[in-house]
């Protein structure tokens, strides 16, 4: 299977290692050849596989949807445009249901999040050894094909959503309004002195809940997909255990893949819905 791992642990570890490019401790730039090397690179390293697959899938999304958009017509739609319209109608319904204000960014943002995350998640259904094996034949040591099992990817998107939340909070409520929201509740007082005393407590609570939003948003997606991928890897281990195990593995893989479709869809949908909800909260006054 994988180049340097004949043991079960080695196989799993190999599958969970991203293709990292960064600065080695000795000062040279290059690919990390082991998990330890990748760890030593610290923050100034980039996961080439995560970036490649996420950007490729995102590009596929904007290209295919952009193609449909160019052919958009109020007459009878056909083929691909039909499907795109169905997706857009679905997203639009969801945004209208959760977002009360008027903001032209929310709906395209939701569409991008939903379709992009869904496409990245669907990579999980490709049998776990196929693409890494091809990459290995091409001389690439590590290849993790599901970007959403890399916390960098999910945190990256959640960070984008978090920045938008901050931007709209300040834009809609004003800097003072936003500051008041962070410090004047949940404990409220009419006495000015008491107000000042309550400020740090309120700020602590509100700050935690503010920061918890993007973290929970990204960890939820990461956790679900990571666990899903892990199970696929464990099932794949059965294929090396002889014909009987391989048969069981085949059945299990099929079953888990079918069940995983639900998780894949659901997690993309949850990420999108929560993004809409957070932005709605940023737009509304308490």
């Amino acid at each position: 299977m994988a180049s340097d791992s004949l043991t079960t642990t080695g196989y799993i570890k190999h599958h969970l290692q991203n293709l990292a490019y960064g600065q080695h401790p000795d000062g040279t730039w290059g690919l990390a050849h082991s998990a330890a090397e990748a760890r030593e690179m610290g923050f100034w390293a980039i996961h080439l596989d995560t970036m490649f697959w996420s950007v490729a899938l995102g590009a596929l999304f904007v290209w295919s949807f952009g193609k449909a958009a160019r052919k958009a017509t109020a007459d009878t739609p056909s083929g691909w445009l039909n499907f795109v319209e169905w997706v857009i109608d679905f997203i639009d319904d969801n945004v209208r249901g959760s977002f009360s204000g008027k903001n032209d960014l929310i709906a395209p943002l939701s569409l991008t999040l939903f379709v992009w995350i869904l496409m990245m998640n669907l990579m999980d259904l490709v049998p776990v050894d196929w693409i890494p094996q091809i990459a290995h034949l091409m001389g690439i040591e590590y290849m993790k094909v599901v970007p959403t099992t890399d916390p960098n990817a999910t945190f990256g998107m959640a960070l984008g959503v978090f920045l938008l939340t901050l931007y709209y909070s300040i834009k809609v409520k004003g800097p003072m309004g936003f500051a008041a929201e962070l410090t004047m509740q949940p404990f409220q007082a009419t006495n000015p002195i008491l107000k000042i005393i309550l400020m740090p407590i309120n700020f602590f609570l509100e700050f935690v809940s503010l920061v918890a939003k993007p973290i929970s948003l990204s960890l939820r997606l990461f956790g679900n997909l990571f666990a899903g991928e892990m199970i696929f890897i464990l099932i794949a281990l059965l294929f090396s255990g002889g014909l009987a195990f391989a048969l069981v593995g085949g059945v299990l893989q099929l079953g888990w893949a079918i069940f995983h479709i639900l998780i894949v869809l659901l997690q993309a949908f949850i990420f999108m819905t929560l993004t809409i909800v957070y932005l709605e909260m940023a737009h509304s006054h308490h």
Binding site: N18, A20, G22, A38, R39, M41, G42, F43, W44, A45, I46, H47, T50, M51, S54, V55, G58, F61, V62, T112, W116, P147, D150, P151, N152, A153, F155, G156, M157, L159, G160, L163
Partner: peptide, 16 residues
């Protein structure tokens, strides 16, 4: 590991 990929992903996200 959390690394530059985070920033790269955020930028890609913004562009899309």
């Amino acid at each position: 590991n959390i690394n530059l990929t985070l920033i790269g992903q955020t930028i890609a996200f913004a562009v899309f």
